[in-house]
C-alpha cells in the first residue's frame, strides 16, 4: 500500500496530465459529424501507435545477452511501427475518398 502511495506521489505531475487529457480528449471531438466517425477512429488508432516509443526504449535498453528481451523488443518495434504507419496511411486513404465524393 505504502509503495503505491509513494508511486502516486512520485508521478503526481503525470497524474495531473492524465486528468486534464481526459477532459481535453472529450472536448476536442465532441462535435464530430457522423460521416467522420470511422476516419476519426482510424486517426485515433494511429495516434495510440505512440506506444512505439516505449518499444524503441525497450529495444534500445535490452542487454546484448538477453535474447528474450531482444526478440520481444524487436517484435514490439515491428508491431508498433505497423500500428503507426498503417494507421496514418489508412486514415489518409479514407479521407482522400471523402474528397473525391464531393
Amino acid at each position: 500500500m505504502a509503495s503505491i502511495l509513494s508511486f502516486i506521489h512520485q508521478h503526481i505531475e503525470l497524474i495531473y496530465i492524465v486528468i486534464l487529457s481526459v477532459f481535453l480528449g472529450i472536448e476536442v471531438i465532441s462535435r464530430v459529424p457522423s460521416v467522420l466517425h470511422t476516419p476519426l477512429m482510424s486517426g485515433a488508432n494511429a495516434i495510440h501507435g505512440v506506444v512505439i516509443i516505449g518499444a524503441i526504449i525497450v529495444m534500445g535498453e535490452a542487454d546484448a545477452d538477453n535474447y528474450l528481451a531482444l526478440i520481444l523488443g524487436f517484435l514490439a518495434v515491428i508491431l508498433g511501427t505497423l500500428n503507426v504507419v498503417g494507421g496514418f496511411v489508412v486514415t489518409d486513404r479514407m479521407l482522400e475518398m471523402f474528397k473525391s465524393k464531393k
Binding site: I17, V22, G25, I26, V28, S30, L40, H48
Partner: peptide, 10 residues
C-alpha cells in the same frame, strides 16, 4: 490518454 478518452466518447 487522449485516444483513450476521445475513443470512449467516439
Amino acid at each position: 490518454i487522449l485516444v483513450g478518452s476521445a475513443g470512449t466518447i467516439l
